[in-house]
Every structure is written in C-alpha cells, then in structure tokens.
Design a binder for these strands. Structure first.
Length: 728
DNA sequence: TTAGGGTTAG
C-alpha cells in the first residue's frame, strides 16, 4: 500500500486532510478516523498524524504527540526530529535537548543532519553550552563534521555563547562553506563585537566569488553599528546600492531597518531620519523601535515619545524602547507609569521590558514596585535564564536599600552565570551601603571565579574603600589595577583616591596625589578635595581648591555653595557673603533639593526643600514638624547651623535647617505610617550633617528605622545610630 | 541564517 495516497473510509485522502487541518478538534477527529481505519499501525500515516499534533503549537497538542510517541514501538527518525523541533518551537529547549539521549537510547533510527540542526538550535538557547559541545562529539562520531548544514548550526550555536574561537575553528576547517556559513559567521562576529573581523570576512567572502545577500548586509551593518564611524556606515550603505540597487523598502524592510539602525548607533541622526523617511508607509515595527531608542539615546526623549504615540499597534519591543528611553533619561516616574499603561493595554512584557522597568525602580528607589516586578518575573518564569535580568534585580534591591536581598540573590547565581556586570552591581551596591570589607571579599571571589574586573569594578571598589575608611586596601587595589589587571587608572579612579585620602583626614597626601597625577585634575576631583577640606575645617587648603574650581567652572552653582559653606562654617561671614554676591551677579542658582518617601502601599510622595505649603496635608505636616522640634529639644539637641550659608540670626538659621526636604518627607512619613514601620527616604543631594544628627535622634525618639539614600550612599538610622558611622 | 528594545559606574 502506498500510504501517501491513503484514503479514509469515506474516500477522503488523509494527507490532504492533514494539510488543511485548522483546529485541534479537527486534528483529534482525523486521528480517531485513522484509528478506525487501522491506518495508525503503519508508520508513515502515523508519523504524519504525529507531526500534525507536535507542530500544532500549543501545550495540549504537544502532550498528545508525546502520547503517540510513547505508544509507538519503533519511532522513526522523522518522528524524533519532529518532536525535537516541536519542543524547540515552544521554547522548551531543555526538553528538546533531552530528547536526543532518549532517541539514542531507544531508537534504532540513527540521527541525521536534521536531528543535529534542531538540537543545536535548542542548545544555543540553554543557559550552559555544555550539552551542545557534548552533542558535537556525537556529530564527529557519526562522521557528520563535514556536513555543511550541521556545521552551520554548530557555528551558530558557538556564536550564541560568544565562543568565537570554536566557531572560527570549525568555520575554517569546514571543507565546504556556503553563503549561510559566511552569513552566520559574520553575524556571530557582529554579536561578539568584532566588527573588523566581520568586515574582513566579508572581503574574503566576496573574493571567493560568493554573492552576498540581504542577510549578509544585515549582519554587516549590525557589526559596524558600534564603531561610530560615519564614513564606514556610508560605504556599507553604498555597497547595498551597488548590489541591490534601490532596495524595495517593502520587501527589504529588514535590510533598510538595519542600515537605519547603523546610522542611529553612529549618532548620524540626519541620515537615519532620511532612511526612515524612505520607508514611508511600510515602517516596520522594528524600524519604529529603532527610531524610538535612537532618539532616546540621543537625549531626545520627546521626539521618541512623538513617534511612539503615533503608532497604533504597539508591540512589546516598542513599549520596552520607550520605557527604557525614559529610564535612561532619568525620568523614572514616567517610565513606571508607561509600564502600567502597557500592562493595562494587554501587551505582555518580556525579560527585556522587565530589565528596563527594574532599572527605573532602582533609579527611583521604589522598592514596592520593584518587588512586584521581581515577583512577576518569577511567576512568568523569566527569572534565571537571563544574566542581565538577574543583574537588574540585584541592582534594584541594592539601590532600594535592601542590600541583603541583593546578596541573597547573588549568592544563588551559579558560577557560569556570574559576569563582570553582575559582580560590579554587587560591589557597587555594597559600596553604597558602606560595606567596604564585604565588597573587597566579593572582589576576591571574583578573582577566584576568574571573572575579569574592569574599570567599573575598580570604581566600585575604591569608592567602597573610601566610604569605609579602608585606606591601605584602597591604596593596594589602586596599585594592582595597572600592575596585575592591565587597567590604566582613569580620572574617576584618581577621584576615588583623592576622596579616600581626604575623607580620612590625609589632606596633605590627597593634595600631593593630585599634583602627582599624570593628567590635569578635573573639577570633580577638586570638589571632592574641597568637601574633605570642609569636613576637616581646613580653610587654607579649601581656598586653593575653591579657586581652582571657580576657574574651571564659573557657572556651577554647587561650587559657590560649597565655598560659601566652608567660609560660613568657620565664621568667615564677610567672605561668604562676597561669594554669594558673585553668585547673584552671575545669575547662578543653588541646585534645589528634593526628597521623596515611599509608603508601604508603594505610593511615592515628593517634597521640595522648604515647601510643603501646597501639600494637602500641610497643616498636619506643620504640626508634626513642631512636635519633632519639641522631641529634639527634649533630647538635648541644638541645631547645627554650619550648613546654613549666611550670617542670619540663630533662630532663622534653625528654621531654614528644619525645612530641609528630608525633614518634610520624614514628618510626612511619620504621619502616614504605622508604629514600627520602616521609613524609606531618597534625596537628590547629599544629606547635611545637621539632618544626619536629627535623623539619628529621631530614630530613637520614635523607635523607627529610617533608610535614607542620598547622592553618595545609604544611611540606615536605627536606635540613635547610623550605619555610616558618621562617615560619608 | 534575518533586523528592533536591556544590566553595572560616571
């Protein structure tokens, strides 16, 4: 019997029925009829029915196909391959790969090149490359290492894990290299950020007589997008014209989109806009997302928003692009409210969306929202597969004041997933929380795990040392940078060192260090030094730093404030007044301070300094501030007014201090929370020493834990003490 | 074999 022409009892051809099958119900009916007709005992119709279920695309149909497979005595290679492909399509890559050993163990059917192609495609999406390499052993055993299709799949797998070395070795040893081999390799080099290697491979390809196709140029433009080289971008664009003429934007949307993205990533907005406009009515979702993120990267969030708003059917990527755009621009509240809109519109976020949202939560310090997003990640099973997502979660916890939660997650991450970024997030988090010694221990762990540190690792480490008073550790880490790790210290590292010496009172050493630097110190260094001079009341050194600063940045408000503070704190009122006058004459304003507090329900309330008069609870806040002042006096507190710049009378100075934005947020927090609840406050400037003292006293007077994040670090106030040990 | 959105520090 020729089963390809098998007919059911009513005369209908089985294959045609299978091909036209649209619903799962129809599929079950066809299967039932096959059984009635006795066709199911023959392998050919059975495997056709089987693939109908396997590739139908839902979990129920896949379950049914598993059932058929388990009841088949000797499944053939076609059935195994279909099963592997079906699991892969439903993103069940682990299960897809595990089918391979089952196949080898049970079947008499030998794996063919389709088997390996499907298996490698799933292996590329596993969290570890180990199974892929084990299966490559079988490829060699089966003598398929010269099969171009299998080799292409393996090269793709290697590139997915960033193992360009293995990919290139196989590529070069391959006896036959086709267009797909070259495209895969060029694309792999692009992803692995080897643009020059990708370019030279392109030359090899054209010299060998192969004609590039659209895929080649998509890969090539992606490779060159990171080079920031306008001329090269233009050359590639010209090559596209040379090979394909004026490309049909409808059919070549991929290619046009990639060329546009290359211009965007080179910062060539005008050319990108030109290409974008050629797309006219066929603007693909990808092109729109590119433009949105391109504008956002260029700091033009409003333009990005305009494009976003004009799109009727927004997909996950477009939503993510705009959310991430706002987050990167520091407009975290807007980012979070867009995420809420996205949820309401029914578009499902994916792991990349979550990364963008978590980064906004981290920026804002919004722990309730952040925790909700984390729970969503767990529920949607997004967590665990992706290192960047893990890094974003760790960073969110650290920046929202829960460093222990951050550490707990970090400790659960297996070694093969620990990247430089992840270590950096943990080390910087620990630094912000003042856990310098633990940061150094984590760094030692990093060295043992052979994860290479970069300049960001050292920024975090040196920062941690300077904020924990670890002068010797800092000194030796700084030395090890160039001597052991081949990283040349940059301005920011020198800045940390000046901070390290200055904060610990070694002002002379800090000054000598600045003078011995291999390049001219920038304003950040002088500001750090000036802060230390203020901390230790060294007017002479402070004057040197101030003079330098005013020369360098005559329009920067904070410098004037710091200088007049230092003069005021040492009662040089007259000079402080002069500075203020210069500031007024030049029309410079002090940066305005604000604080916000998050309540348990996740709502965030923001307070600008000295201003709560517009707040709906203004009367309660005023009376709470009065009560606070009373409690403070009872605790023997006298306001320190060294931070108040001007020589006004003492009472007025006290008033100005008592209206610092963090105090307003605290008063509001006490009013709107239950006893024993932790108060979480974020401030956009550094906390002043007076507020710091007040927060310590109030943590005892009200028996409250207060967690406060300022621009430089976290302060945990509890029982009259602060975690920074008054060192910040 | 195809493009687009993502993490740390400053």
């Amino acid at each position: 019997m020729f089963f390809g022409r098998a007919l059911l009892q009513d005369g209908r051809p089985l294959l045609m029925l299978i091909e036209s099958c649209k619903t799962l119900r129809q599929a079950y009916q066809i299967h039932a009829q096959t059984v009635v007709n006795g066709l199911h005992i023959h392998l050919y119709p059975l495997s056709k029915i089987f693939s109908l279920f396997a590739l139908f695309g839902c979990s129920e149909s896949l379950d049914h196909s598993r059932l058929i497979l388990s009841r088949t005595d000797v499944p053939n290679v076609f059935m195994w391959n279909t099963m592997i492909r079906a699991h892969s399509r439903q993103e069940l890559h682990g299960k897809a790969v595990l089918l391979y050993p089952s196949m080898i163990a049970q079947a008499r059917a030998l794996p063919n090149h389709f088997t390996f192609t499907f298996v490698f495609s799933s292996c590329a999406r596993l969290p570890t490359p180990v199974p892929g390499f084990q299966i490559y052993g079988h490829v060699i055993k089966r003598g398929l290492e010269s099969d171009t299709i299998v080799m292409n799949a393996f090269i793709h797998f290697c590139c997915g894990f960033g193992d360009l070395h293995s990919a290139q070795k196989v590529f070069e040893e391959s006896p036959v290299r086709d267009l797909i081999s070259f495209n895969t390799m060029i694309s792999g080099l692009a992803q692995g950020r080897k643009p020059h290697a990708a370019l030279s491979l392109f030359t090899v390809m054209t010299r060998s007589g192969l004609m590039p196709d659209h895929f080649t140029f998509v890969a090539l433009s992606s490779a060159c997008s990171g080079l920031n080289n306008y001329r090269l971008a233009k050359q590639i664009h010209n090559l596209v014209y040379m090979y394909f003429g004026f490309v049909d934007c409808g059919r070549s949307a991929h290619l046009v989109g990639s060329v546009m993205d290359m211009y965007l990533k080179c910062g060539e907005m005008e050319m990108a806009e030109k290409v974008f406009n050629t797309l006219q009515n066929v603007k693909s979702s990808a092109a729109l997302s590119c433009m949105v993120s391109g504008y956002a990267r260029a700091g033009k969030v409003e333009l990005a928003r305009q494009i976003f708003d004009q799109v009727d059917e927004k997909d996950t990527v477009l939503w993510t692009a705009i959310i991430s755009g706002y987050s990167q621009a520091g407009q975290y509240t807007e980012a979070l409210s867009l995420y809420k809109e996205m949820e309401a519109s029914g578009i499902k976020p994916d792991k990349i969306t979550m990364v963008a949202v978590l980064s906004a939560c981290a920026g804002l310090g919004a722990i309730t929202f952040g925790q909700r997003v984390y729970n969503q990640c767990l529920k949607k099973r997004l967590y665990g597969q992706d290192v960047i997502l893990i890094t974003a979660i760790v960073d969110m916890y650290a920046k929202c004041g829960k460093i222990h939660a951050a550490l707990e997650i970090f400790h659960g991450v297996p070694n093969y997933q620990r990247t430089t970024h992840l270590f950096n997030a943990v080390i910087s988090g620990l630094a912000q929380h003042g856990h310098g010694k633990i940061a150094v221990l984590v760094f030692e762990e990093m060295e043992v795990a052979k994860v290479s540190p970069d300049e960001i690792t050292f920024t975090g480490l040196l920062y941690a040392c300077s904020h924990s008073g670890l002068v010797e550790e800092g000194r030796s880490l700084f030395k090890s940078m160039s001597q052991m790790h081949g990283i040349n210290p940059q301005m920011k590292h020198y800045c940390c060192m000046v901070d390290l010496f200055g904060r610990n009172g070694n002002l002379d050493e800090a000054y000598k260090f600045i003078q011995a630097m291999p390049f001219e110190a920038n304003s950040v260094i002088w500001r750090s030094f000036l802060s230390s001079c203020k901390l230790y009341g060294d007017v002479e050194m402070g004057r040197i730093a101030s003079t330098k600063l005013l020369e360098m940045e005559p329009d920067h408000g904070a410098r004037y404030v710091l200088l007049s503070n230092i003069l005021a704190s040492t009662k040089h009122w007259e000079e402080a007044g002069k500075v203020r006058k210069v500031m007024e004459e030049r029309g410079i304003q002090k940066p305005s301070g604000w604080s916000h507090i998050e309540l348990l329900d996740g709502t965030i309330h923001q307070f600008p300094a000295s201003n709560y008069k517009l707040h709906p609870q203004k009367e309660e806040i005023a009376s709470k501030l009065g009560e606070i002042n009373g409690r403070l006096r009872a605790a023997g507190y006298a306001p320190s007014t060294v931070n108040v710049v001007f020589d006004v009378d003492e009472e007025e100075k006290e008033m100005i201090v008592s209206y610092h934005s963090e105090r307003l947020a605290l008063a509001f927090g006490l009013l709107n929370s239950g006893p024993g609840e932790v108060l979480r406050i974020m401030k956009n400037l550094r906390i002043c020493s007076d507020c710091h003292l007040v927060f310590k006293l109030l943590s005892r007077a009200y028996e409250r834990e207060i967690i406060m994040r300022d621009t430089t670090r976290f302060h945990h106030f509890k029982n009259g003490l602060c975690s920074c040990k008054d060192f910040w």
